[in-house]
Amino acid sequence: MATRASSRRPVSFGPFVRRPVKGDGRAGSSESGIERVTSLPDDAIEVGAVVDAYGIKGWLKITPHAGVGSSGGALLCASSWWLVKGGVCRAAQVVSSKAHGVTVVVQLAGCADRDQALALRGATVHVRRADFPALGRDEYYWVDLIGLAVVSASGDALGQVVDLIDNGAHSILRVQYDEIGRDGRITKAERLIPFVDAYVKTVDPSDRRIVVDWGMDY
Results as ranks from 00 to 15, higher is better:
Ser70Tyr: 11
Ser70Met: 13
Ser70Trp: 12
Gly72Asp: 01
Gly72Met: 07
Ala74His: 09
Ala74Glu: 07
Leu76Glu: 04
Ser80Trp: 12
Trp81Lys: 03
Trp81Asp: 02
Trp81Gly: 05
Trp81Met: 04
Trp82Asn: 07
Trp82Phe: 14
Leu83Arg: 03
Val84Tyr: 07
Lys85Ala: 09
Lys85Thr: 03
Lys85Phe: 01
Gly86Val: 06
Gly87Tyr: 04
Val88Leu: 05
Val88Asn: 10
Val88Pro: 07
Cys89Asn: 06
Ala92Asn: 03
Ala92Ile: 02
Gln93Phe: 08
Gln93Asn: 14
Val95Phe: 07
Ser97Ala: 15
Ser97Val: 08
Ser97Tyr: 00
Lys98Glu: 13
Lys98Asn: 13
Ala99Ser: 15
His100Asn: 11
His100Trp: 12
His100Ile: 01
His100Glu: 13
His100Gln: 09
Val102Arg: 15
Thr103Ala: 14
Thr103Met: 09
Val104Glu: 03
Val104Ile: 02
Val105Asn: 10
Val105Leu: 14
Val105Ile: 15
Val106Gly: 00
Val106Phe: 05
Gln107Cys: 06
Gln107Pro: 03
Gln107Lys: 15
Gln107Glu: 09
Leu108Arg: 01
Leu108Tyr: 02
Leu108Gly: 00
Gly110Gln: 04
Gly110Met: 08
Gln116His: 03
Leu118Asn: 11
Leu120Phe: 02
Ala123Asn: 02
Thr124Tyr: 13
Val125Asn: 02
His126Thr: 02
Arg129Gln: 13
Pro133Leu: 05
Pro133Glu: 08
Ala134Ser: 10
Leu135Thr: 04
Gly136Pro: 04
Asp138His: 14
Asp138Gly: 00
Tyr140Gly: 04
Tyr140Ile: 09
Tyr140Asp: 06
Tyr140Ala: 05
Tyr140Val: 05
Tyr141Asn: 03
Tyr141Asp: 04
Leu145Trp: 00
Ile146Arg: 15
Ile146Leu: 12
Ile146Cys: 10
Gly147Gln: 07
Leu148Gln: 08
Ala149Lys: 11
Val150Phe: 05
Val151Glu: 10
Val151His: 11
Ser152His: 05
Ala153Trp: 14
Ala153Met: 13
Ala153Gly: 05
Ala153Tyr: 12
Ser154Cys: 08
Asp156Glu: 08
Ala157Phe: 11
Ala157Pro: 09
Ala157Thr: 12
Leu158His: 09
Leu158Trp: 03
Gly159Ser: 03
Gly159Arg: 03
Gln160Asp: 04
Val161Gln: 10
Val162Gly: 15
Leu164Ser: 09
Leu164Cys: 11
Leu164Trp: 02
Leu164Gln: 04
Asp166Gln: 06
Asp166Trp: 11
Asn167Met: 10
His170Asp: 12
His170Met: 04
His170Arg: 10
His170Val: 01
Arg174Gln: 12
Asp178Met: 09
Glu179Cys: 15
Ile180Met: 15
Ile180Leu: 13
Gly181Thr: 15
Gly181Glu: 14
Arg182Val: 09
Arg182Ile: 09
Asp183Pro: 04
Asp183Tyr: 03
Arg185Asp: 13
Ile186Phe: 05
Lys188Tyr: 02
Ala189His: 02
Glu190Arg: 10
Arg191Asp: 06
Arg191Val: 03
Leu192Val: 04
Ile193Thr: 01
Phe195Glu: 00
Phe195Leu: 15
Phe195Cys: 10
Val196Pro: 07
Val196Thr: 13
Asp197Phe: 05
Asp197Glu: 10
Ala198Met: 11
Asp204Phe: 05
Asp204Val: 00
Pro205Gly: 05
Asp207Val: 12
Asp207His: 14
